[in-house]
């Protein structure tokens, strides 16, 4: 698998710092990071993945509405001809004090491969990448 990654902050969220830190760390590890920016739609992420032949789409969200923003994402990937692409999501995904295991399960059920809880170390994300795409 190639080392191309697409990353962006989804929905109406403009919090960019987490994404920037992740991108920096991934580039240092030799990944080709295609940053589509903040406040991006599902389509923008998928289009970027098609054009760059990405192995992973990494969705960043801080404002608590990721569940709504990510709904149907895997289906859209299948429709767009990239059914096997790895989908990562992380940040502050939901509002309120919710049990993390429930949250994680909901995202896994939506077709995500990796779900990162608030406060996840960047090193963990890098180890997932190593495992998934080398």
């Amino acid at each position: 698998m190639n080392k191309n990654i697409v990353i962006g902050v989804i929905g109406n969220d403009v919090h960019t710092i987490g994404k920037q830190l992740l991108s920096y760390a991934m580039r240092k590890e030799g990944y080709s990071v295609n940053d589509v920016g903040v406040s991006v739609s599902q389509d923008e992420l998928i289009n970027a993945a098609i054009e760059t032949n990405a192995s992973v789409i990494m969705i960043v969200s801080l404002y608590g509405h990721a569940e709504l923003d990510c709904r149907g994402f895997r289906d859209k990937c299948i429709e767009a001809g990239i059914p096997g692409i790895k989908l990562y999501v992380g940040g502050n995904l939901v509002v309120g004090q919710q049990e993390w295991n429930d949250v994680e399960k909901r995202f896994l059920d939506m077709g995500f491969d990796r779900v990162a809880a608030p406060g996840t170390e960047i090193s963990l994300a890098l180890s997932w990448l190593k495992e998934d795409i080398g």
Binding site: N2, N4, S32, N34, I50, E51, T52, N53, A54
Partner: peptide, 9 residues
């Protein structure tokens, strides 16, 4: 055109 450098072939 089509594909970024190193992207879709």
């Amino acid at each position: 055109a089509g594909g970024t450098d190193g992207g879709d072939e």
